[in-house]
Design a protein around this nucleic acid. Structure first.
Lengths: 188, 188
DNA sequence: CGCCGAGTTGAACTGAATCAAGAAACGTGG
DNA sequence: CCACGTTTCTTGATTCAGTTCAACTCGGCG
C-alpha cells in the first residue's frame, strides 16, 4: 500500500494523520483477467488505485466493434470517473485485461476525506486536472490527426500500450476498424 | 461582479473573507469582437470569468479550415485551461466572436487563493471536474457518433450555439468541412 | 453600387467501413 | 508437449461518406 502514499506525496504533503484517514478507507480487491468490474449503466462507487494489471474502459456494441475510451495500467488511478463524480449511471464498462489488484476507495469514503482533511481537495483537484489534460489531448487528436497519425503517436508516446494490448482494442481506441489498422500497419 | 459570487456559491459556501480575497484579485477587461485574446504558443496566464460575449478556442490552419475545440458564452469560465494549469505554451488560440467582458484572475493570484483559502481547492476541483465532464462527453461523441449525429445532438443540446455561431465554425467543431455540413443540413 | 465572406451545389477522388474468407497465434485439455 | 478449437490478424472486393477543388448565389457593408 506504500506505493499509494508515494503516489499521493507527489501531489501534496501528507501528514501521518492525513495518511491514516486516507488509508483506513482503502479496501484491497483482486480480479482475474477478463473480469467486468463495472457494467455499463451501473453507478461507479469506487475510485481505485491499481497496484498491478491492465484495465480497459469501453462502450460495448453488439454485432460491431465496441468503442474503447481508455486503458489504465498499474500504479495509477482507475474509475469510471464520469459516473463516479456525478453519481449517475456509467456510459461505459470497465473490464480487466489481465489479473488485477486494486485498492478501492468508496464514494462515501472520499467525501469523508474531503470533509476531514485539507489535502483531500488538493489531491482531488490535481487528479481531476490530470484527467482533464488526458481527455483534452485526446480531443485535439481526434480533431486534428488522421487515424494513421494517431497510431504513430501512440507508438511514440505509449509503446507499452501497443506492446501489451490486442490490436483490435487499439483500433477501437483510435476510432477505426481492426481491418483499417491492419492496413495502416502494413503500409508503414 | 456579483454574478461571479453567485456562480461560486453554487459550488461552495463562501465566507465574506473568502470572497474578499477572491474578488480583490479580479481585473476587468473588455475586448471588441474578432479579437485574439491568446495566441497559439503563448502561455495562458489567466482564468477568466466571462460576463458577456462569445469566445472560440481553435487551432489555426493555414490554407485549410482550422480546428475548433470549443465555444464559451457569458456567465462561464474561460481559459486555455490546459496551458493555464501546466503553464506550458498553448496548443490553441482564443478569440472573441462578439464584444466580450471578462473578469480576469492571474495564475499567481489563483495560487494565492489556493494558499489562503480552504474553499479555493474545492472550487478548483469542481471546476476541473466540470471541464473533465465536458471533454469526456466530447471524446465519447467522437468515438461513437457520425458527424450527422453530432450535429443533431448539438441542435438538441446546445441550440444557442447553432443560433449564434457561423456554420463554418460549427463544422470545424464537429470535425468536418463546411461543405459536408451544408450537405448534412440539406438532407435533414 | 460593387465587393467580400458565408453558404450552397456539383464532380472527381479517397480513405475507411463492411462483408467475407483465409492465415496465424493462443490457450486449454488430453 | 502436442492437437484442437477459438480468437486475433490479415487480405481482397465493394460501397459510401467526407474531402477537395471549383463555380455560383446570397446578404450585408463600405
Amino acid at each position: 500500500m506504500e506505493f499509494i502514499r508515494k503516489y499521493l506525496e507527489d501531489s501534496a504533503n501528507l501528514t501521518d494523520e492525513d495518511w491514516h484517514i486516507f488509508s483506513s478507507k482503502l479496501e484491497r480487491k483482486e480480479y482475474p483477467k477478463k473480469t467486468v468490474i463495472l457494467k455499463m449503466g451501473q453507478i461507479e462507487n469506487y475510485l481505485s488505485f491499481t497496484e498491478a494489471g491492465i484495465i480497459r474502459y469501453y462502450i460495448p456494441q453488439e454485432e460491431k466493434n465496441d468503442h474503447t475510451i481508455s486503458f489504465t495500467f498499474g500504479n495509477s488511478f482507475s474509475s469510471a470517473y464520469e459516473s463516479f463524480i456525478t453519481q449517475q449511471s456509467s456510459k461505459y464498462q470497465v473490464e480487466t485485461l489481465t489479473k488485477t489488484v486494486q485498492w478501492k476507495l468508496s464514494y462515501q469514503g472520499l467525501q469523508e476525506i474531503y470533509a476531514q482533511t485539507i489535502v483531500g481537495n488538493l489531491i482531488g483537484r490535481l487528479a481531476a486536472e490530470g484527467l482533464y489534460l488526458e481527455t483534452s489531448r485526446r480531443e485535439i487528436s481526434f480533431l486534428s490527426e488522421t487515424p494513421e497519425e494517431r497510431y504513430l503517436n501512440l507508438f511514440k508516446e505509449q509503446p507499452k500500450l501497443i506492446q501489451y494490448i490486442p490490436l483490435k482494442y487499439i483500433a477501437s481506441y483510435i476510432g477505426i476498424s481492426p481491418q483499417a489498422l491492419s492496413r495502416i500497419r502494413k503500409r508503414i
